[in-house]
């Protein structure tokens, strides 16, 4: 009988001990949670819900939650999220009741048009399949020191799969690009720029050298003829032998305008042309044999 009593009481007291300690801790935590309550910014949570949530870090903050906090506290404006679509940015601005100032979506563009058919590689590179490694060895295999190496460091870095290597040239699929800028960091040649996603026309050359020099190893360099600048002085800029689209101009050049320029070097292209025609079609007028 006595033995039974011992076990029986042990069960009861064990339950009592656990229960009371649990209760005390529970009450303590509940009271502490009440007394030491930290007001979390509900606006930040609101913003976070609207953000894409990819945590790409394109804004420079550590993830979307951090960005939301910065937006709610007024440190950043919602338009500084490079990934958000215009609707998202507007929705965030509306939710916070603030003015929406900077807000156009950005898109990466590879400013080189020299694929394998158009350029010459004086060096046979057999090393690691990575642009950064290749560029370390006497400037890389490509004749043009400013051309795309086509080994795909940017394509592998892109978290959204928006960059493709076609015939030894990196091309951007604009509809997939969100403008996070990771490829800009990855490219050892600094060929990739983040520009207004509405820009459909680009001058695909980054080489500032003299035209005859460029011609030695590339069929499609910007030769600095200034045809585009003469036709649309407010939309194109040519410095030395390198033309660029003025992305800050109030009006961006349209595809028709670009076609009307009739760029003799075939480096003024629309994004769609850069993406498709030239590099796949051996019969295209640009694709000549390299002497």
């Amino acid at each position: 009988m006595n033995g039974f009593m011992v076990e029986y009481s042990s069960v009861v007291f064990a339950a009592l001990a656990m229960g009371s300690i649990g209760l005390v801790l529970g009450i303590l935590i509940a009271v502490a949670a009440k007394i030491f309550k930290v007001e979390s910014d509900s606006r930040a949570e609101l913003v976070l819900e609207l953000l894409p949530g990819a945590n790409c870090g394109g804004c420079g903050k550590a993830g979307c939650a951090d960005f939301a906090k910065a937006v709610a506290s007024g440190e950043l404006s919602p338009g500084q999220c490079p990934v958000s679509s215009r609707e998202t940015v507007n929705a965030i601005a509306q939710a916070l009741g603030i003015e929406n100032n900077v807000s156009f979506r950005k898109c990466a563009v590879v400013l080189c048009g020299g694929d394998k058919n158009q350029t010459r590689n004086p060096i046979l590179y057999n090393g690691v399949n990575d642009c950064r490694s290749a560029s370390l060895i006497s400037g890389g295999p490509k004749g043009c020191a400013y051309g795309c190496l086509g080994l795909g460091s940017c394509a592998r870095t892109c978290p959204f799969g928006a960059i493709e290597i076609v015939n030894g040239l990196a091309v951007v699929h604009g509809e997939l690009c969100v403008g996070c800028g990771k490829c800009v960091m990855a490219c050892p040649r600094k060929l990739i720029k983040l520009v207004n996603a509405d820009a459909q026309v680009h001058i695909y050359c980054s080489n500032p050298e003299k035209a005859p020099l460029k011609r030695q190893y590339c069929n499609v360099p910007c030769i600095g003829c200034r045809k585009c600048e003469k036709a649309f002085p407010d939309k194109f800029k040519v410095e030395g032998f390198r033309g660029t689209v003025d992305y800050d101009a109030p009006q961006l050049p349209t595809a028709e305008e670009a076609a009307s320029v009739k760029c003799p070097a075939h480096c003024l292209l629309t994004a769609a042309e850069h993406l498709a025609v030239e590099h796949n079609d051996p019969d295209h007028e640009n694709t000549k044999e390299i002497q």
């Binding site: 009593m5 011992v6 009481s9 042990s10 007291f13 064990a14 001990a17 656990m18």
Partner: peptide
């Protein structure tokens, strides 16, 4: 007055 052994807890 009850004998208990709570060490198993």
């Amino acid at each position: 007055g009850f004998k208990v052994d709570l060490s198993f807890l």
